[in-house]
Design a protein around this nucleic acid. Structure first.
Lengths: 342, 342
DNA sequence: AACCTTACCGCAAACGTTTGCGGTATTTTC
DNA sequence: GAAAATACCGCAAACGTTTGCGGTAAGGTT
C-alpha cells in the first residue's frame, strides 16, 4: 500500500536521462529521438506512470476544475442540472468539484473559501436557504467567475433562472379556472427568494381575479416530506374550506398528499394539489401530480456556458438568463368529467 | 476578473518581511512576535488572502481528498450513500471528488487514471454496468486504497454490499406465499453482478418451492423507466399467465407499473409487482410499491470507514462487509382481504 | 578547412507553500 | 561585565512538472 507512484525522476534515473528529456519524450516532442521515446514509453507502461497533477496544477496556477455548490444532490433537479454542467465542462476539459451545503449558509461560506484555495476556474452555485447573509458571494463577484442558477440572492451577478413568478401565476390561474376559490400555498423557507417570488405570483394572480386569501393559508416548510405532511395536516384541519394547495416542490406536495390521504377528502374535487419540478414519479402517484416542469439540465448547461464566457473574458459578470417552465396538468388538479368510467 | 489571488510573497514584500515569517505568523507560530502577527493578519484580511492549496498539496504529496465513483448521482441510492461517505470523510478532514460514469466502463477507467493523477488518498467505487473488463481495478488493488460498495466485480478487494441473494430470495418467497405461481424477473444489464445475484436468489427460491419458471420470463433492461415499460409491455402481452414481477430497482418497477396500467389488470390480484431500493415515492404510488429497503447511507459510511483503515494501514485490502436489507411489504403485492372498506 | 545545419539532450527557473536550521539582536543571569 | 538564555526572523530545500535556452556532436556545405 505504501507503493509510491513513479515520477519523471524515477524514469530518468533508470534510463540515464534527464527529467526534461523524459518529460518531452512522453509528450512526443520532436526534439527527442524515436529510440529514446520508445525506451521511455516502455518504462512508463511498466511502472504505470501517472503524471502528478498537483505539480502541473501548481505550475499552471489552476486546478483545471470548476466548483459546483448545491443544497443537496439528492434533489432531483440538482442531479439533472449537474449533468448539464458536466456536459458543458467536458468540452473545455474541466472537471467538476461538487459540494453540498445541506441548506447551511455557514457551510456555503466555508465551501467558497475551500474552492478559492483550490484555485478552481470558477464557481456555479444554487444558494442555500439557510440565511440572508450573502457577504461570501459579494466578496468575490466582479473579481472571480461566478454564476447563480435556479436559486439566486440579492447579489448583482450572472444568473440562470426560470420565471418563477409567471410559473406560480399560471398554476394559480389554472386552479382558479377549475373553480377553486380557497387556495393555499405551501412555501419553502422564508429566506428562500424563489419561494417568495412564487408566493408573489400566487398572490398577484388571486388579486387579479379578485379572490380573497388568508395569511394563514400561506405556510412555510423545510424541505422534507415529513415536515410538509405535518404542516398540511394541521392546516386542513384548521381550515377545512381550503379546496386547493400549491406546494413549493413536488417533495412537499407528496408530503401534503400523505396528510390529505389520511382524511376522507377526494382529490381533486375536495382539494386539488400541485407542485414544482415534475419529478419522474409524479405521473405514477395517485392521483398523478400536476406540476411545473423545469428545464434543469438546460439550466445547468447554460450556467456553465455563462461561466466559461466569464473565464475567457468574453462575457459580462452579470448576464441574466430566464428559461421557460411548463405547466403539466394531471389528475391531482383536474378530472375529466366526461370520462366514461366515472 | 484578472485579479490574481494574493500570495505570501505579496504580503511579505508589502511588510518588508520574509515569506517564512509571514507563513509562520498566519499559522500562529510562537517564534513570531504578536506585533508582527497582527500586522500580517491585518493585511491577510484586507487582501482576502487564501493559501494556495495547489502548492500545499504538492508539498504534502496528496490532494486531501478521496475519489467517489458512481454510475449516476441521479440514482437515489447513490445520493444517499454519498452523504454517508461525506459524513465519515469530514471526520478525517478530507473532501470528496464525485465522479459519474454513466454506466460506461471506458469512462470509469479514465476516471481512475484522473483520480490517480490527482493523488487522491483513496477511491470508493460502485462499478458501472457497461462491461466485463475490470483491469483498471485489478491494476491498482493491493497498491492503492480501494473499496467497492453496492455493486462489485470479480476483483479481490474490500467490499460493502447487501445480501442480494437473500433479499431476492425473501422477496420471491413472499410472492409465493401470497399464492403467485408465475413469477417473472426484470433484471438489470447482464453484465451487472448484483443483478445476477438477485436473479440467482429468485431462481433458487422457485426451485426450493418446486415452482417452474421460463427463461423468457427473465428479461434484462437498461436503467430507464421507458426501457422497462416497453420490455414489460411485450412481456405481459406475450405471457398473460404471468401473475407477479420482481424488478431490479424501483425505477424499473415504475416503468413496469406504467406498462401494466395500460391494460385492465388489477394490482396485485392479476399481477403483483415489487422492486428494490425503497425510494421515497414508493408509498405514494398507486398501488404503493413493495420494495427492498437498503441501508444506503450506512453502506457509504461503512465503505469510507474501510477506506480510511486502508489509508492508515490499519486494515486489510480485502475486508468484506455485508449489510442487511429489509423487505417492505405494500399493496402492490399484498392486499388485506379483511379490510372493512372493500 | 572553416562554417553551417541538424538532431538530440540537459540545465535551471518557475509555480507557492512549509519547515529545519542557523543567525542576530536583546535580555537575563550570576 | 561576561556568559547564557531568549526572542525573533531569514535562508534554503523540497514537492514534480513544464519549457526556454544553451550546448554538443555528427554530418553537410562551400
Amino acid at each position: 500500500m505504501k507503493n509510491k507512484i513513479a515520477t519523471l525522476k524515477d524514469i530518468a534515473d533508470k534510463l540515464g536521462l534527464s527529467i526534461s528529456t523524459v518529460s518531452r519524450a512522453i509528450s512526443d516532442h520532436p526534439d527527442i529521438s524515436e529510440q529514446t521515446k520508445s525506451r521511455v514509453m516502455k518504462l512508463v507502461k511498466r511502472l504505470d506512470y501517472q503524471p502528478n497533477q498537483l505539480a502541473i496544477n501548481l505550475l499552471n496556477q489552476q486546478s483545471n476544475s470548476i466548483g459546483v455548490i448545491v443544497p443537496s444532490i439528492a434533489y432531483y433537479l440538482y442531479a439533472s442540472a449537474i449533468s448539464g454542467i458536466e456536459q458543458e465542462a467536458e468540452k473545455h476539459g474541466l472537471k467538476l468539484i461538487i459540494c453540498q451545503t445541506n441548506e447551511s449558509v455557514q457551510r456555503e461560506s466555508e465551501i467558497i473559501n475551500e474552492l478559492l484555495r483550490m484555485r478552481v476556474a470558477g464557481i456555479i452555485v444554487s444558494v442555500s436557504s439557510g440565511g440572508r447573509d450573502f457577504t461570501h458571494f459579494k466578496r468575490i463577484v466582479k473579481r472571480f467567475p461566478l454564476v447563480f442558477f435556479n436559486r439566486d440572492c440579492s447579489v448583482n451577478a450572472s444568473k440562470v433562472m426560470i420565471n418563477n413568478h409567471k410559473a406560480a401565476y399560471d398554476l394559480t390561474q389554472h386552479l382558479v379556472e377549475t373553480g377553486k376559490r380557497h387556495i393555499s400555498f405551501l412555501a419553502g423557507p422564508k429566506t428562500l427568494q424563489i419561494s417568495n417570488k412564487r408566493k408573489k405570483g400566487y398572490l398577484d394572480c388571486l388579486e387579479d381575479f379578485g379572490i380573497e386569501t388568508q395569511k394563514e393559508w400561506v405556510c412555510h416548510s423545510p424541505f422534507s416530506q415529513i415536515s410538509a405532511m405535518n404542516i398540511v395536516d394541521t392546516l386542513i384541519r384548521k381550515y377545512p374550506e381550503i379546496d386547493a394547495l400549491i406546494a413549493f416542490s413536488d417533495q412537499l406536495a407528496m408530503g401534503a398528499l400523505k396528510a390529505i390521504k389520511k382524511y376522507q377528502k377526494s382529490i381533486p374535487d375536495d382539494i386539488a394539489i400541485a407542485g414544482f419540478n415534475n419529478e419522474p414519479a409524479d405521473e405514477l402517484l395517485e392521483p398523478p401530480l400536476t406540476s411545473i416542469e423545469q428545464p434543469a439540465f438546460e439550466m445547468g448547461r447554460k450556467a456553465a456556458e455563462l461561466l466559461f464566457n466569464q473565464i475567457h473574458q468574453t462575457g459580462k459578470y452579470n448576464e441574466q438568463v430566464v428559461l421557460n417552465s411548463r405547466l403539466i396538468i394531471r389528475r391531482s388538479t383536474w378530472q375529466e368529467t366526461t370520462k366514461p368510467e366515472r
